[in-house]
Design a protein around this nucleic acid. Structure first.
Lengths: 143, 143
DNA sequence: ATGCAAATGAGAACGATTACCATTCGCATG
DNA sequence: CATGCGAATGGTAATCGTTCTCATTTGCAT
């Protein structure tokens, strides 16, 4: 049902090393879907894994280039990564608790293509974040 | 036709000092519409103005808080600022030459509101950039 | 003209990220 | 299974953008 991890790495031209497997696993089975390098590093430490911070940064970048992860630059200066599951989506970030929710709106997507075309551009990528406040009770963890 | 600069500053609770006037002027009459702190700093140096980099950062942030400037976090890790002329717009950035073009699409705007509402969020702000390549000849300056 | 709080400038400090480099590891080979 | 080589690692120094500190200067009300 699921490809064995090492295959992912091999096909990306990356040796299947311990740190890389650990990090990939963290994204696949960890509790957090969106993680910064620092968070990944801490999670690994918490499980007693000895992985250098430099390696975390390197591996995250490699995974991103290999298409395994997607990198986002939210406000706050740090990059966060998430597993690339092929389905594009944008993000809405709660300014209070930092909670991230994903959404996809085909109308927005198609309008973007139209806008770019009208201006004579060829879309390579785009980045849309909505910064907002949870109005529901589902915003428990204060920042 | 145009308010005298010092009034802008006063009403924002800011003394009209030389550095602040210089920087504001740079945005109002300078050639570049989108500038990073570093760029502002260099422009001032180029004109022989002696303004500290720390002051540039401080003033840019103050202007942003006062609503005179808008801050954007494009890819690349540095913030860029532009004059706030009241009209919201998003940006399309050329990946080759770094040229920034502005656009506004009411359909995208309204869909965002709808999406946020459906998810139980109160929009505070949003950030949309399209990263693309100029297809026209208007992309002269390589990055 | 005078005084004081606010603003400035130079450089130190900072957080996120990258570079460097000696050591270790994955893996193909005999 | 021992060996070897290049890729990967990890600790630390370095870098980059930005903020902080603090002694000095400035704007401006008096």
């Amino acid at each position: 049902m699921d490809e064995t991890p090492p295959e992912h790495l091999k096909s990306a031209g990356l040796k299947s090393t311990l740190p890389r497997l650990k990090i990939l696993d963290l994204f696949k089975s960890g509790s957090e879907r969106h993680m910064s390098a620092e968070e990944v590093y801490k999670q690994l430490l918490a499980v007693g894994e000895n992985v250098g911070l430099a390696t975390v940064y390197r591996v995250l970048t490699q995974f991103q280039q290999a298409g395994l992860l997607v990198r986002h630059n939210f406000e706050g200066g740090k990059s966060v990564f998430e597993l690339n599951e092929g389905t594009h989506h944008d993000h809405i970030v709660c300014l209070q608790c930092g909670h991230v929710e994903e959404f996809y709106d085909s109308a927005i997507e198609s309008r973007q293509k139209k806008v770019a075309a009208e201006l004579g551009f060829e879309i390579h990528d785009h980045s849309l974040q909505i910064y907002a406040n949870c109005t529901k009770t589902k915003c428990p963890n204060k920042r």
